[in-house]
Simulated scan of single mutants.
Amino acid sequence: MRSLPADCDALLTCIQEENGIALLRCQTSASQLLLPDELDGLPITRLGDYAFSAREPRQLPEGTFQLLLTSGGGQIPAHDAAALRLVRLPQRALSLGNYAFYGCTGLEALEIGGSLQSVGTDAFMNCFSLRRMTLAAPAEECRCLRSLLQEYSGELELRFTPPAGPECRLFFPAYDEDYEEMAAPHIFHYNIRGVGYLCRQSFDGHRFRYDQYDASLDLLLRTHEFSLAARMALDRLRFPVQLSEAARTAYLTCLSEHTAQLLELVLAEASTAPLAFVLALDLLDRQALAEGCELARTARRTEALGLLLEYQNRRFGAPRARSFDL
């Protein structure tokens, strides 16, 4: 069996097709899986049904071959779908098969090339930990975007990082769906709960519509907790791709009316970049700043506390020194 040097150990089962290589099965116990973009000079263009899942494909066609990705050990790894945390798909992959990540319960992040066009049925079934997808194309050019959002109803942040053009981030809240039996026999009512479903309908055909997405903020504020609206607002204001002035004003108003909760949210982040951005918006008054400083002290966020105190001094002046007569 041939092997290729890689950052992790994985056994790939593939077949050559007319336009490239199809990856039918990937066996690995690695937490981070960075797949190659091509094999033998041919691009990997298709990812098969159950390719990464806990369950094996029902049947593999004749003509398959296997290749071992190895970080140095040279041993064939046992497959553990639950061990996966991050997967980078081949950048020229065109399709992702049915149930591709079924049972990958620990999967947190997925990196997708800008060429992906279709996503199979229940591709992310039981991916309970999935929270982030990064796509190497603008949202309006991702033909797979609608099907990605249809196949995953959990809370999700999408990051768009095209080679040329501005980065964009979009937050999609979770939603629930179920069937309620109304009368026997087999008469059901389909229920959908959560603004996450409305956010996912922001399309004209397969083209993403930023204006429709921004319009869902009002309903989100009326029906959900503020932290969800704040995440949407922060992402759109920090990465304002096709952000209208009216939408920008609505997002700023949303944040300015909930400054205490906003500070709790950004201070919970490991990075201080969201806090620095919030401070640059000049939304915080003296009381909000004092509460933010206390939160940072309690959480032992030294760097964040330094940013808050520096901003407080710059905007309101250093506090007056106090002296006491004995």
Score class of each variant (00 low, 15 high):
Leu219Pro: 12
Arg207Asn: 01
Glu167Ile: 00
Ser115Lys: 05
Leu217Met: 14
Cys142Met: 10
Glu180Ile: 15
Leu135Ser: 02
Ser118Cys: 10
Leu135Thr: 08
Ala183Thr: 04
Gly205Pro: 12
Asp178Cys: 14
Ser216Val: 10
Leu107Gln: 08
Leu170Asp: 02
Tyr102Asp: 01
Glu151Gly: 06
Pro138Glu: 07
Leu221Cys: 07
Phe160Lys: 03
Leu228Asp: 10
Leu135Pro: 01
Arg146Ile: 08
Gln117Phe: 01
Pro173Ile: 05
Val119Tyr: 06
Pro162Asn: 06
Gly114Glu: 02
Tyr99Trp: 09
Leu220Trp: 00
Gly196Lys: 01
Phe101Trp: 07
Pro166Leu: 13
Glu225His: 12
Gly196His: 02
Cys142Asp: 00
Met182Asp: 04
Arg143Lys: 14
Glu225Asn: 07
Ser153Phe: 03
Pro185Ala: 03
Phe172Gly: 03
Arg209Tyr: 05
Arg209Gly: 00
Pro166Val: 12
Ala137Asp: 13
Ala184Thr: 06
Met182Ile: 13
Gly120Asp: 05
Ala215Pro: 04
Leu145Ser: 11
Asp214Tyr: 07
Glu177Cys: 11
Leu135Val: 14
Gly196Pro: 14
Gly103Cys: 08
Arg146Ala: 15
Ala136Asn: 06
Cys144Ser: 11
Leu219Asn: 07
Tyr152Met: 04
Arg143Gln: 15
Gln150Thr: 00
Met125Tyr: 00
Leu130Ala: 08
Thr105Tyr: 14
His186Arg: 02
Ala164Tyr: 03
Gln201Leu: 12
Arg146Met: 14
Glu141Asp: 10
Leu156Glu: 09
Phe101Asn: 15
Cys199Ala: 07
Ala184Ser: 13
Phe128Leu: 15
Asp178Phe: 15
Asp211His: 05
His189Ser: 15
Tyr190Arg: 14
Cys168Lys: 03
Tyr175Pro: 07
Phe160Leu: 01
Leu130Met: 07
Phe203Arg: 04
Gly106Cys: 06
His186Leu: 01
Gln150Ala: 13
Ala229Met: 03
Glu181Ile: 14
Leu130Phe: 07
Ala184Leu: 10
Gly194Ile: 09
Leu217Lys: 12
Thr134Tyr: 12
Gln150Asp: 11
Pro138Leu: 04
Leu145Pro: 15
Glu151Cys: 04
Glu111Gly: 02
Glu108Ala: 00
Cys104Ile: 02
Asp204Lys: 13
His206Lys: 08
Glu108Met: 00
Asp122Ile: 05
Phe124Pro: 04
Pro138Arg: 04
Met133Leu: 11
Val195Trp: 12
Glu141Arg: 15
Thr161Gln: 11
Thr105Asn: 05
Phe188Ala: 11
Val195Glu: 13
Arg207Asp: 07
Leu219Ile: 13
Ile192Asn: 15
Arg132Leu: 10
Tyr152Lys: 01
Phe128Ala: 14
Met125Arg: 13
Pro162Gly: 01
Phe226Gly: 11
Cys104Gly: 06
His224Tyr: 05
Arg146Ser: 11
Asn191His: 15
Phe171Asn: 00
Ser129His: 10
Gly205Lys: 06
